[in-house]
Design a protein around this nucleic acid. Structure first.
Lengths: 199, 199
DNA sequence: TGTACATCAGTGAACGCGCGTTCACTGATGTAC
DNA sequence: TGTACATCAGTGAACGCGCGTTCACTGATGTAC
C-alpha cells in the first residue's frame, strides 16, 4: 500500500516529534512539520484532519515512550523493588528534562485528551506502571492508600521536573537559597530521591 | 503627575492580569490588554518597551500575591506549626488551581527572569516563606537538609497543581485508576496533604 | 494483457486572520519668561 | 498673570509576518472489463 511518498503519515508524525522538541508545542507550526518531512505545507491534510490531531499523535508517542522506559526500569529484576522504584523516579525525571518540550505538550491543555482515546490510554498506561511498583513495594496496602501513594509520588517527580527545568532559578547568578537548593538537587538527583522517598 | 488618563501604567498591568487569567499567557495579545484598558492598541508602548516586559509585571504580581497569601497562612499564630504548614500547602495549591493561567505564566520560560530582577526577587520571596516554616518545623536541621526538604515539598505541591489541573485525567469519563485516584485527592485535599506530608 | 476510468496523494496559490511593532500625528499638560 | 513654547501621553493607519486552512489542480496508482 504505497502511494507516491510511501508512508507519509508515519513520516509526518516523526517529523512532528522532532519539530515539537525543537521549537516547543506552542511555537511549532504545521508548515514547519511539513517542511521537516520535505512535503508541501498542505500535504498533512491528506492524513490529519487538523493540526490538533497530529499533535495528539505526538503526545501519544511521548506517553508510550515514557511507559516503555518506566517498564524497562521496573524490569531490572536483579534490583530490589526499592531500587527499581528509585530507578523509575530517576528515569521519569530524566525523561522530563531531556524531552522537555514533548513533556510540556503531554501535559498541555491544548489537546483535549478525551477526544483522543488512544492518547488517554497511553497516558493511563504510564501511570499504571507506577501503580505496579508501588503495590509491590507496599504489600497489603488498601486500594485507596495505594491510589494516594501513587498521586503522591507522581506529583513529586512531576513537580521536580517543573522546578529543575526552571533555569532562571536553578542557574540563577544571584546567590539565593532557592538557587543553591536547586543546584544541590540537580547535582545528585539520586540522593535527593532517596531522601524524598523517605527510605 | 497625572496626564490624560491618570495612571495608565497601573491600569495596563491590572488589565494584563485579567486578560492573562482569562485567555492564558500564550494566547493573550497586547491588543486585547489595551482593549481591556480601553485605550488604543499602541498606547502600551508609552509605558512598556515590549510585550515581554508587561508580562514580567504580571508574573511579578503573581509571585507577590502568592508570597502574601503564604505569609498570611503562616501568620495564623493560634495554629501549631504543623497546621500552619498544612495551611500553606493548601493555600499554594488553591492558588495554583484558581489562578491557573497566571500560575502558568509564572512558571513559563517565555519570560527570562534574570532580565527582570524584581520578578526574580518576588519568586525567591515566595520560596523563602516555605523555608521559614520548614525551619520552624524541623528545629536543629542542617542547612543542606533544610534545602532538600524545601525542594521536596515545593515539588510536591507544584506537581500536585499540575496533576489536579489536568481535567482530562481528573474528570475522565473513563473509569481509570488515575481518574479515581485524582478525584479522591481533589475531594479531600487536606487529608491527602496530611498523608503526603507524613505526619 | 491492454485500455479506459476512478481514486486519491501531494502541489502551489490564495484566503483571511491576528499579531507585535513603527510612524507621523494630535492635543493636553507643564514650564520659562 | 499671560503667553509662547516644549514635552509627552495617547491615536489611528499601516507595515510585514507567520499562521491554519481551502481550493482547484496534477499526476501517479489501482481496478474493471
Amino acid at each position: 500500500m504505497k502511494y507516491h511518498h510511501g508512508n507519509l503519515k508515519e513520516e509526518l508524525i516523526s517529523s512532528a516529534c522532532i519539530v515539537c522538541e525543537a521549537d516547543g508545542h506552542d511555537r511549532m507550526s504545521l508548515r514547519s512539520i511539513a517542511k521537516e518531512a520535505k512535503v508541501s505545507q498542505t500535504a498533512p491534510y491528506r492524513h490529519f484532519k487538523t493540526k490538533e490531531s497530529l499533535l495528539a499523535e505526538v503526545s501519544t508517542r511521548g506517553f508510550t515512550e515514557l511507559k516503555e522506559i518506566l517498564q524497562n526500569a521496573n524490569a531490572k529484576k536483579t534490583l530490589s523493588t526499592r531500587d527499581r522504584f528509585l530507578e523509575m523516579g530517576q528515569t521519569y525525571i530524566e525523561f522530563g528534562l531531556s524531552k522537555r518540550n514533548t513533556y510540556d505538550l503531554m501535559h498541555s491543555p491544548v489537546i483535549d485528551k478525551t477526544q483522543f482515546p488512544e492518547l488517554l490510554n497511553s497516558a493511563v498506561g504510564a501511570f499504571e506502571e507506577l501503580v505496579c511498583v508501588l503495590a509491590e513495594l507496599n504489600p497489603g496496602i488498601s486500594a485507596k492508600d495505594l491510589d494516594i501513594k501513587c498521586i503522591h509520588y507522581w506529583a513529586l517527580v512531576h513537580g521536580l521536573v517543573g522546578l529543575l527545568r526552571n533555569d532562571s532559578l536553578a542557574e540563577s547568578e544571584i546567590d539565593t537559597k532557592a538557587g543553591n537548593a536547586m543546584g544541590l538537587v540537580k547535582s545528585d538527583l539520586r540522593s535527593f530521591l532517596i531522601s524524598a522517598l523517605e527510605f
